[in-house]
Nucleic acid binder design. Structure first.
Length: 441
RNA sequence: UCCCCGGUAGCUCAAUGGUGGAGCAUUCGGCUGUUAACCGAAGGGUUGCUAGUUCGAAUCUAGCCCGGGGAGCCA
């Protein structure tokens, strides 16, 4: 592509174009769609920042008209024209096109596959690399970026240092879920991390308050709208922190992320038709109930739950529907939580754990709690969970050398963003979703 | 791994066991304010695969393949 900077008109983005009404600008992008009406063409351009309608009249711009007429969807173009206020145009502005440079013309023999109409999920996921060009998908990805930025800002402001846990790990962090095994160098086996949890504990003992924010992998055969095999998790961990500290941090983090998106991505939220009012209500403190009370709520709702049962998706939905904000459920039975979870000294059958359940049935977005600090108890738990002790020697070192109370949690980015966006499925909120039976494109 | 639903034109979907259709997309024609524009015409099919029942199967049966949703498990 040739450099077009020699054009006398300023190159601008569609997002910025409205501010230059009355002026002439150049936009570099793609032809999103085109409507024709006799001797008038209404091309709609997109450039990644938005879409803008153009107008070309045969009478006034015969050369541009001829070049544009019949140009297939998604052909790349550099267009020049005058920006003007136009109530009839979507967005309120339109571009009176006076110049057109076609960078690449999509061949007529193989037209762009994605139309401006509904498609099936399978079709779209097979063409995810093109699907992300549609305004809705682009808006969701911008909201994701805002959520990530806001999350980092909040953690940094709370005095947490961002660190990074390894992707290759020698063994499971938690014995329960399935791991992706990879061939490491010279016949060694390694696994893709399912959580940075253990490593972030070591980093907390080194740096005090830390968090990681990166991809994690779970080879679970889960086929639901809430699951991905590769997803991003933000995992804070703080030395000398207790359960209550983490619940408050989680409330602050989630509300800060939601408020930032509501404030800074209003255009995108409007485009995907998400009710901002529901988001503005997300301010701390969030409702909290104990696991004990959660069981009672379920029983009152006519659900045959009994103490000791795990809370599945249906149960979470029943509880979350009682509130219009995320709800914190804390102190689950020790038996149903990971081996490293600390127990409640007042009631040893309970763990100092908590989950945060998003409203509207989006499920668990946070899981965490206080960690076991005692060496002997931790060794007992490793054995009880049938975990290979030799792989955890470095982790046990954290209890040998200056063990302290410490706590943390994991926040699932995609579930959080899916809830904020109100998307049907979690796969829409990550650029290239990795799911059961789907690793293409 | 288990349970439920689906697979028909490029896409979204119709079609009582009796000649496989529509809208959109594509190509051609028309239209000076369109809003997934509209109007007219044309091309486009091994009905997921295999076997079976039947005079006759997109339709009924069995097996397999692929996809979706859910359970379990989890963020």
């Amino acid at each position: 592509m040739t450099e077009t900077a020699q054009t006398p008109n300023p190159i601008t983005t569609i997002e910025q174009a409205g501010a230059q009404a009355g002026g002439t600008v150049t936009i570099r992008g793609w032809l999103y769609n085109m409507r024709e009406s006799g001797k008038l063409l209404f091309p709609i351009f997109r450039d990644g920042t938005g879409t803008m309608q153009g107008v070309v009249s045969l009478k006034e711009q015969p050369e541009v008209f001829a070049a544009l007429k019949g140009l297939p969807q998604e052909s790349s173009v550099v267009v020049t024209g005058s920006v003007r206020t136009e109530p009839r145009a979507p967005g309120g502005f339109e571009l009176g096109v006076t110049g057109l440079e076609i960078i690449q013309r999509v061949p007529d023999s193989a037209p762009y596959p994605i139309q401006l109409k509904e498609h099936g999920v399978d079709f779209l996921l097979d063409r995810r690399h093109l699907w992300i060009r549609t305004p809705r998908q682009a808006a969701i990805l911008r909201i994701r970026a805002e959520a990530q930025r806001a999350a980092r800002n909040y953690m940094d402001a709370q005095g947490y240092t961002q660190t990074d846990a390894p992707i290759f790990t020698p063994a499971a962090c938690e014995g329960t879920t399935t791991l992706f095994e990879v061939n490491y160098i010279d016949d060694q086996k390694a696994y893709l991390t399912q959580s940075g949890q253990l490593y972030v504990e070591a980093l907390a003992a080194a740096l005090g308050k830390v968090y990681t924010f990166g991809p994690t992998f779970r080879a679970e055969k889960s086929k639901t709208r809430r699951h991905l095999t590769e997803f991003w998790m933000l995992e804070p961990e703080a030395a000398y922190a207790h359960l209550e500290d983490m619940i408050q941090l989680a409330e602050g983090l989630v509300s800060s992320v939601v408020q930032s998106v509501a404030k800074n991505r209003t255009r995108e939220l409007a485009l995907i038709e998400r009710d901002v009012k529901a988001l503005e209500k997300i301010v701390p403190p969030f409702p909290r109930i104990t696991y004990d009370d959660a069981i009672k709520v379920l029983q009152k709702a006519g659900h045959p739950a009994k103490w000791g049962d795990d809370l599945g998706g249906d149960e979470e939905t029943i509880i979350s529907k009682e509130f219009d904000r995320p709800v914190v459920i804390h102190r689950y039975p020790t038996a149903m939580k990971a081996f490293y979870m600390a127990t409640d000294p007042a009631r040893p059958e309970l763990s100092l754990s908590f989950d945060m359940i998003a409203p509207e049935g989006y499920g668990e977005i946070i899981g965490g709690g206080e960690r076991l600090a005692d060496y002997d108890t931790l060794v007992e738990r490793l054995r009880a969970h049938n975990l290979p002790e030799e792989s955890f020697q470095w982790y046990l070192d954290l209890r040998r050398f200056g063990s302290v109370p410490h706590s943390g949690f994991g926040l699932g980015l995609e579930r959080t963003v899916a809830w904020i966006c109100g998307t049907e499925h979690i796969r829409e909120v990550i650029p290239f979703p990795r799911m059961l039976y789907r690793v293409y494109p």
